[in-house]
């Protein structure tokens, strides 16, 4: 997992131990597989963006001439940032609670979090429609209580999409954070308290810095996943909730404009890589402090 690599900054230094000298060879099948089914196709696609239909930068030029595509990319980024932040705010206390609760209770809490995780994204998205729809449970309850006089349109807003994405991505955040928090030596907190630090200071100066590696791993996974979303925005979003994944898919499936689709994918890939590298850099600086 990624958190192992990241957590390396703060966890006790692990002595480099080798099972046997050829252990690296065991990774070879996976490396070969990734090279064949991932690196090569992606490489071909990147090349396509410069060669289809003719060699040149015309696909990228089109992106500059019609700002709508970069607008969609910007919207997708904003969606990813909002969803990642909201997931972190909702997920961190859950992960923390699971580390301090009695093991049996923690198992139940994690179980509750993961049961919906086993259902598909489509089913969970539809479930939200049942709750939030015009004739849904929420509207029914509000009408019954006399709080509203006619159904409120809860569906088909950006906030609906964000809510659904947070709910879908929460387990991806909680698990690495929980794994990270469990490695924190709680006696450090007792020591800080014993030395007179108030609870807020203990959290800010001791607990939070130690939890950052796990937090960054969880946030990174959520952030990257956000860029691939298209079902949830399609079903729950309104007019403006178009994500870059939806636009790229339209180029390949609807427009048969593979060159332009490849160019959009290349820009998305580059932007995502830059964002991820920036996050990793921040994470590293924090853990070195």
């Amino acid at each position: 997992m990624m958190d192992v690599a990241l957590a390396g900054g703060t966890a006790q230094p692990v002595p480099s131990q080798r099972l046997f000298s050829g252990a690296g060879l065991l990774a070879l099948p996976l490396i070969v597989l990734l090279a064949v089914v991932y690196v090569c196709p992606v490489g071909v696609m990147l090349a396509d963006s410069f060669t289809d239909p003719q060699p040149g930068l015309q696909q990228y030029q089109r992106m500059i001439e019609h700002p709508v595509y970069l607008q969609v990319l910007a919207r997708t980024f904003r969606l990813a940032v909002v969803v990642t932040a909201a997931t972190a705010i909702c997920g961190f206390p859950v992960a923390y609670y699971c580390t301090i609760a009695r093991p049996a209770v923690a198992r139940i809490a994690l179980g509750l979090l993961f049961v919906p995780f086993w259902a598909s994204t489509v089913v969970r998205t539809y479930a939200l429609m049942v709750i939030l729809g015009r004739t849904g449970i929420l509207n029914g309850a509000l009408l019954w209580a006399g709080l509203i006089s006619r159904p409120t349109q809860f569906l088909f807003h950006t906030a609906t999409v964000q809510l659904a994405m947070v709910q879908i991505l929460l387990p991806f955040f909680v698990l690495p954070v929980y794994a990270g928090l469990r490695t924190i030596d709680l006696s450090l907190l007792s020591a800080a308290e014993g030395l007179g630090a108030p609870p807020w200071q203990v959290f800010r100066r001791i607990y939070l810095p130690l939890s950052l590696p796990g937090l960054f791993t969880g946030a990174l996974i959520v952030f990257v996943f956000c860029f691939g979303f298209f079902i949830t925005p399609t079903l729950l979003g309104g007019r403006r909730d178009v994500t870059i994944a939806m636009v790229i898919m339209a180029q390949f499936e609807g427009q048969l404009d593979w060159g332009f689709g490849a160019a959009l994918s290349t820009v998305l890939l580059a932007c995502t890589l830059v964002a991820v590298l920036m996050m990793l850099r921040v994470a590293k600086q924090d853990s070195n402090r």
């Binding site: 019609h66 709508v68 595509y69 607008q71 969609v72 919207r75 007019r239 403006r240 178009v242 609807g254």
Partner: peptide, 10 residues
């Protein structure tokens, strides 16, 4: 048309 639609919808 698709281009104009993409701009309109946003």
């Amino acid at each position: 048309v698709t281009q104009a639609w993409a701009e309109w919808i946003l």
